[in-house]
Design a protein around this nucleic acid. Sequence first.
RNA 1: GGUCCCGUGGUGAAGUUGGAGUUCACGCCGCCCUGUCAAGGCGGAGGUCGCGGGUUCAAGUCCCGUCGGGACCGCCA
Length: 590
Amino acid sequence: MNKQTNSTALRSHLCGDMRVENIGQKVTLCGWVGRRREHGEHLAFLDLRDFSGIVQCVVDNSVDVRSEWVLRITGTVQARPAGTVNDNIPTGKVELADCTIEVLNNAEPPPFPIDQRGDDVDENVRLKYRYLDIRRERMQKNLRLRASVNSAIRKSMESQGFTEIETPLLMPSTPEGAREFLVPSRNEPGSFYALPQSPQLWKQLLMVAGIDRYYQIAKCLRDEDLRADRQYEFMQLDAEMSFVNKDDVMAMISTAVIAAAKAATGSEPPPIERMTWHDAMNHYGIDKPDLRFEMKLIEMTEVFAKTEFKAFASAESIKAICVRAAEYPQQAASGRNKLDALTDKAKKLGAKGLVWIKVTEGFVLDSPVAKFLSESEQSQLISLTKAEVGDLILMVADTWSTTCSVLGQLRNDLGRPPVHEGPYRYVWVVDFPMFVGINPTTKMPQPGHHPFCHPHHEDVDRLESDPLSVRALAYDLVLNGWELGSGSIRIHEPDLQRRVFRQLGISDEDADNRFGFFLQPFKYGAPPHGGFAFGIDRLVAILAGEDNIREVIAFPKTQSGSDPMTNAPTTVNPNQLNELGIRLLPPAAK
RNA sequence: GGUCCCGUGGUGAAGUUGGAGUUCACGCCGCCCUGUCAAGGCGGAGGUCGCGGGUUCAAGUCCCGUCGGGACCGCCA
């Protein structure tokens, strides 16, 4: 911030800006009383705090000012006497003397310390007094970092020719996707608006409308259960471009993300690498791989092609992960209880079982199944996993997708560091499958993404003959195992759109009923287009070194969707319900 | 919908095989203190151990339920 703009009618400077250069100046500062240190009848030290930091004020001990009172202090900046410099704070070489104190407001003692110790306070208490929590340096830093990320993104998008356009919050309910928040209509009782899960429909219409490059930092709302990385309402950089291929979109988004990261951390991350969805699943067992640690899935199917071990015989896919004692001593040394728990976990995740093998002295394998494995199988197991003595090998034999996903989950459980720990590993995951399987009841392919996602040009011919082999022009951006966002090239050809709908079991008539207002415009000359959206909260949290997006949101909700400060959600006045034509049912009996 | 963890003065914790609301630190109130900086010294106030049942001579402690918070699975096209 321009220092001159910090000067106001009430103050001349900011507390945290006081430096040796200010010595001799008469300044007026405004802020809150941090700590008070009393030293007799006529000497006390006050730490005066504003958003910029704290500065020590030397005052007469007779003044009655207490914790978190709001003061305006006029005084002279002076060098601290020799031996009293505090190197731990930026203002530690100076102090404010000859202070005249004006009490702008007094305050009750805060429920928790307005400093680093607030980090240990129950989050519910922090949220109940969020306005005090935000006074703390951590939250001030996080919210300002968030603002600088937003600013860098805007600057980057604008310099790349994108036009910012706001889209409605009140829109029709759309049948697919996440659960929506509904808003009852007063003028049409019985009818509802929905709040947008994303501006997806609007931005595609803006492409039909010839905007060419649209972006918006948009609030999105989804009525799904909350998590460390999920809130009901969250911010997305939402963008869409015309006359592009996926490389164009990924380049634009990469530029914006790299600009944001640089603004937040001061250093530019390297170009973002790419990985196909198939490779991600095959090597990491998940479509949002965390590249900060190894423990990759190791292919074992061939090794056990002719095995005598029944559980492995005829399995479509056999893979292993090696928990290395050198990196994960505790996990590798897991005892029987822990291994049984891992086996239970694997079964819960859909595997038929989990084979564990401990590599003991002399590369002797300790495992309930060791006796079923031939000498050659055992030696190949060790050489392919590069296992050392003390390592723990976990194996799953199942369908390819089950083997991958179960081991991927175990890999994350056993090895994944907290999301904010460095280094930052961005990765584009590309070539997602168009369909993720066959619905057992309808016998129809299940969509991997929304149904407007364009199939890979090379695969379009197989849409009907071999739908599961069709790749989508879809891509996700992943950072440290968190999905930052996803995008795709959209279908702009009405004929192709109908073919995709039919594959999903949606007849032309159904499609018109459910998506009519959205499909109609595409008859009037839709350009080829594609776009992306990524979650600002998640990016900011990781860049801020937090592993929870609530730490970078000013007023977040708890995991149950409530706000301890405002008590939202609340009941409403019956008159409001009457006006909306809404009558409440009695609470459902349990 | 499910699995797991947590709930003790304002805050953070300790509380043993069940034995008196016991303890520690910070904060708060008062007094002392002229160079501290998470100042220091002395004194004081402050709690229905989330809530409701149960077991027991006796429950913060064991059991059941419930409420609140958190992590994860489902879910989030």
